[in-house]
Design a protein around this nucleic acid. Structure first.
Length: 323
DNA sequence: AGCATTTGACCCAT
DNA sequence: ATGGGTCAAATGCT
């Protein structure tokens, strides 16, 4: 745990420094803060989070032995890819949905031809910014039971040309509609990255759509959005299969680990701006839901989440450079 | 015209 | 049976 711990601290310190830098940038957008753009800083921060989490994940998994391979590590463990048996016919509805040329003929019969994902790591962030440096294409929206706001479904725009299977779900936070809870599912396997400038401009559609059609907060969102592009990743996890054994404790772990992490972060961030944040904790009703979250003044909110059971990874391992 | 979004239907998991 | 994730035709936008 020694070297892990060091590495953890190093990552967190680095992240903190970068966050502070970003904060300055946000407060004085036109000042001179060196050459780093907000996006670059965000990427750095995310890398720190990712690395930190991977260290923690590794520790949880192998308490005692500080061995930290998990190379691209990320969120450790459970990375085995389980090829998911069934549905040999219509294969690949999900893995790329077999491209644009899906079943056009007979169109309506989709039986057995798409399988639900539930297969990869997921992690949730909350932020006023819904952009994250990736190009997404919306493919659905649903009203969610007991939720005041609909959930929008996005897939990577590279899904078909590069087979990237990353998806995300975005939903306005009930308590604070100006914030968006984004759940990322699966890893980007594509190469593309939207240039920073594009990022900012390209988010309007969803916002305007959701915001304007869903009452309140007209287009203030855009300001928030432009004002900050915080994309903190705080917690991620994988979908697991079968019965959650006490030993893997993934859910419990998520809260413990996260809370633990938060307290560390809290101290850390407090050094930067003690008044700027609060940490809240609440439990979800059914074993999945918020475990803890943290708000910072720069609309920087992070959050951890839920677990699900099965997995059948077709995903590749979690890249550190997902942004 | 080509691409993105909307939206109801379809399908799967619970 | 129901909620929610995905599909795909219709529609909108550039």
């Amino acid at each position: 745990m020694g070297s892990n711990h060091k590495r953890l601290i190093k990552e967190l310190v680095e992240g903190k420094k970068t966050a502070a830098e970003l904060q300055m940038l946000l407060h004085k957008p036109f000042g001179d803060h060196g050459s780093a753009s907000a996006e670059e800083l965000v990427v750095k921060i995310m890398t720190s989070f990712t690395e930190s989490l991977s260290v923690l994940a590794a520790e949880k998994k192998n308490p005692g032995d500080g061995h930290e391979d998990h190379q691209s590590g990320a969120f450790g463990e459970v990375y085995q890819i389980k090829p998911e048996p069934s549905h040999s016919h219509c294969d690949d509805r999900s893995s790329g949905d077999s491209g644009e040329s899906r079943k056009v003929q007979g169109s309506k019969d989709r039986r057995g031809c798409y399988k639900r994902r539930k297969t990869s790591q997921s992690w949730t962030t909350i932020s006023s910014a819904i952009e994250d440096g990736r190009a997404w294409r919306k493919y659905g929206q649903k009203e969610i039971l007991n939720a005041p706001y609909p959930r929008a479904y996005f897939r990577c725009t590279r899904k078909y040309d590069q087979g990237c299977r990353a998806t995300k779900q975005v939903q306005q936070v009930q308590d604070n509609p100006r914030l968006y809870q984004t759940t990322y599912i699966g890893q980007h396997t594509c190469k593309s990255m939207v240039p920073p400038q594009m990022i900012i401009g390209s988010s309007d559609h969803w916002e305007s759509q959701t915001v304007s059609s869903e009452s309140e907060t007209p287009n203030k969102q855009n300001h928030d959005f432009l004002g900050s592009s915080a994309i903190p990743i705080v917690k991620q996890e994988e979908y697991k299969e079968g019965t959650p054994t006490p030993s893997d404790l993934t859910d419990n772990l998520s809260s413990l680990e996260t809370n633990h992490l938060w307290s560390d972060f809290k101290d850390d961030f407090a050094l930067c701006d003690p008044a700027a944040m609060c940490v809240s904790t609440k439990m979800g009703s059914d074993n999945e839901d918020v475990v803890s979250n943290m708000y910072l003044d720069m609309d920087f909110v992070v959050k951890s989440i839920d677990f699900d059971r099965d997995f059948n990874f077709d995903e590749v391992e979690f890249p550190k450079n997902s942004l």
